[in-house]
């Protein structure tokens, strides 16, 4: 195998000096290479969902609602009618006597907890690099979130103004 014949043959054909022959021609076409992330029937189901998109949209939709719910909540609790000094068991009893404020607080609890939990999930995904750390932090986050949502819901629905 002489060097100058190899150079001659490989000129423009894309065939390296080792092969010494053209790999592809009209009778032997090059294989079709699929786009790296193209979704096919072989793609696992889990990666075909739109969970991240739904989460992204949820952050924006719940965010708009929370702006109204939370700023009104701050106005009532901290600004109007004496601010924080008026708050006590009697004030809570007065508010939760109305189904309107029960629904208000329930909606605020659920949306804020889910919005916050998804935000923290993003933060964990960004900063916790070891798989084990991620697993434990997310386990802790989801446990605390479910616990807090259930506890808050229970408290709103079972509130008893005559507890004593």
């Amino acid at each position: 195998m002489s060097t100058d014949t190899t150079v001659e043959k490989s000129g423009g054909s894309g065939v390296g000096p080792v092969e010494d022959v053209a790999l592809y021609d009209v009778d032997h076409p090059a294989p079709l290479i699929e786009a790296p992330r193209k979704r096919t029937s072989k793609t696992p189901r889990a990666t075909r969902g739109n969970f991240e998109m739904a989460a992204w949209l949820f952050m924006r939709l719940s965010g708009v609602v929370l702006v109204v719910l939370v700023i009104t909540h701050l106005l009532i609790q901290l600004v109007l009618d004496g601010g924080v000094s008026k708050i006590g068991f009697a004030f809570v009893a007065g508010r939760w006597a109305s189904p309107f404020w029960q629904v208000w607080d329930l909606l605020m609890l659920w949306l804020a907890m889910l919005h916050g939990a998804n935000g923290l999930r993003t933060v964990i995904n960004d900063y916790a690099e070891r798989p084990n750390t991620r697993l434990w932090l997310k386990g802790l986050l989801y446990t605390a979130t479910v616990f807090t949502i259930l506890l808050g819901t229970l408290v709103i629905f079972t509130f008893d103004p005559n507890i004593r």
């Binding site: 809570v92 807090t148 506890l151 808050g152 229970l154 507890i163």
Partner: peptide, 15 residues
């Protein structure tokens, strides 16, 4: 928010 739900839950304990 987590702490706030816990402190509000005390209305179920006693006034």
């Amino acid at each position: 928010l987590f702490v706030h739900v816990l402190d509000t839950a005390l209305v179920r304990v006693s006034p």
